[in-house]
């Protein structure tokens, strides 16, 4: 079942064409990786998929709903889409668990319940004991895991990750990918942007972007 679909999507800023006629689909339970050199439009693709940006032409559909018709994109970001960035993911003045409960609180969920949900997800990512610590007391890997936890809280169907392993060493990076993979296997749709092929290899499909267009894609055959 398709979670997000980009149909013939283009995005340009004045003269610059960041994306050109891109067709992409991510189904539930699938991890799709997007690779490309800098300037190829990877982050733009991610922003469009999550509703942070709107295309100049083409449609972006999230769970069957055309994003252009959605009035409250912010609500979408709170409930349906989770974001993980390379850095500056967490708010330094909030503890780990408060960061994770943030989208739920923003959505109006009562603090007590949001905190319970957040603790559960932190448990999943293995950081339950760090719940009360502040981001500057955590290591880089731990911070990213908290960010992923925040992207997962509340049963979100789509997780968008923009170079989540950027600043991490190999071992930690693998852990992160393991988490994302696990989430995909559990039923979410995960769209991952990376420039490291080793991490892209965790995906079911790897899409290569060149100059805003999809040049090729590597599909892992179904074995199941």
């Amino acid at each position: 079942m398709t979670v997000v679909r980009l149909a013939n999507v283009s995005r340009s800023y004045g003269e610059v064409h960041a994306l050109r006629n891109v067709d992409l689909e991510v189904a539930a339970g699938r991890l799709v990786a997007v690779m490309g050199p800098s300037g190829s439009g990877k982050s733009t693709l991610l922003n469009l998929a999550g509703g942070l940006d709107l295309p100049t032409s083409g449609t972006v559909t999230l769970e069957g709903v055309d994003l252009a018709a959605v009035k409250d994109l912010a609500a979408l970001r709170r409930r349906s889409v989770g974001y993980v960035f390379q850095d500056l993911n967490l708010i330094p003045s909030l503890t780990a668990v408060e960061n994770v409960m943030l989208p739920r609180e923003l959505d109006g969920v009562r603090a007590r319940q949001a905190r319970a949900e957040a603790l559960a997800v932190l448990e999943e990512v293995g950081l339950a004991e760090a719940a009360g610590r502040f981001p500057d007391e955590l290591s880089g890997g731990q911070r990213q895991r908290v960010a992923i936890a925040r992207a997962l809280v509340g049963e979100r169907r789509l997780v968008l990750a923009d170079e989540p392993t950027g600043a991490l060493d190999t071992r930690t990076g693998d852990e992160i990918l393991q988490l994302l993979r696990g989430r995909a296997d559990a039923g979410a749709a995960v769209l991952l942007v990376t420039h490291e092929s080793r991490y892209a290899a965790w995906a079911d499909r790897v899409v290569f972007l060149r100059d805003g267009e999809i040049a090729d894609s590597a599909l892992l055959e179904e074995v199941r």
Partner: peptide
Amino acid sequence: IVHAIGGT
């Protein structure tokens, strides 16, 4: 960050 994750 708050805006990205859906704050008003």
